[in-house]
Design a protein around this nucleic acid. Structure first.
Lengths: 165, 165
DNA sequence: ATTTCAATGAAACTGAGTTTCATTATCAGG
DNA sequence: CCTGATAATGAAACTCAGTTTCATTGAAAT
């Protein structure tokens, strides 16, 4: 039986500055290509939003990203942040994650293994976990139902180790 | 390796009228006890809401239940339906389920095995599936994280067999 | 009958998410 | 460089499922 991998995935790339720059460059480039395909441009506002989301060590709500981006560029608007997050989601670079407070959070999906979430209802912390075996049986159920799965949401709500005391 | 059970769970009790009456009686009684514990009563409006949700062959939104209840009793209000659904949820008799259209749906949870959902983004149909093995590996991940799981949401979005053509 | 408090329906409110709109930036062709 | 076309933006307004308020009704307990 395969051991279920236990990984804290998120700040992986953010730890090493050089690695972070490479990661940012790679994702920026992908984003730029996607935008160009739609006749759009990678503006400095859009790049700022992407940078904020990438450098965060945790999952961010729209207003988290807005606040972070505003620090770097006080003229940036909430609508732009919103629209950029939607664009990132659209092209598969970012994904929405549920939360304990009802506000959707965002995470970078590109260049990261698939994972699901455990959400603490006390502190709001979102932990990521991978379970290839779980995926396997999920896929089996999908096949049995002849269902064409496009995306899924697997979120476990409860108390994290620290908040459980 | 256990075969993943494939069950269409929902209208199970609703098929047989006698069985349905027994089921309704049992759940009504549980609900009544819960309400009495809080100094509340099982009013005819509350019972009507419960009956509507029980007899439905599919998952219902607040307004679905409201419409169904209004047919039986035109004076019933949306607020009452809302509050009753919350009460049913509170005591574990009902649960919220996501949907393709953004409106939360409700299902009866009492006396039914645990299951997750596949939601068709074309027709809105919500299929239920069970996978004990999947649960098993999910629980393993939860244990490994020393997480206290209170509830979870596992919803797969895509196209059902019919809508996939 | 009177008091008390749960229960109700209609209507108003909430707030995350989204869209509108007038203005500003950007770019391609001249 | 200009110039026209169109992408992009920020502020503010809007949406709408979900929720709460409030004045009224109902029901149980004296």
């Amino acid at each position: 039986m395969t051991k279920t991998a236990e990984v804290i995935l998120f700040p992986r790339h953010a730890k090493n500055p050089a690695q972070f720059r490479t990661w940012l460059a790679s994702i920026s480039s992908t984003f730029k290509k996607y935008l160009e395909g739609k006749g759009l441009n990678l503006t400095h506002q859009r790049e700022e939003v992407l940078k904020c989301l990438l450098s965060a060590g945790n999952h961010m709500s729209l207003d988290d990203v807005y606040a972070a981006a505003k620090k770097k560029d006080p003229t940036i608007g909430r609508a732009t942040v919103f629209r950029t997050l939607k664009l990132l989601e659209e092209c598969g670079l970012a994904a929405e994650v549920g939360s304990a407070d009802g506000r959707t959070r965002f995470e970078i999906k590109a260049d990261r293994p698939h994972h699901d979430h455990m959400i603490c209802i006390e502190c709001g912390r979102i932990a990521e976990f991978e379970s290839p075996m779980m995926e396997r049986f999920q896929n089996k159920a999908i096949r049995q139902h002849k269902f064409i799965a496009l995306w899924h949401r697997h979120e476990i709500f409860g108390r994290c180790e620290l908040c459980a005391k």
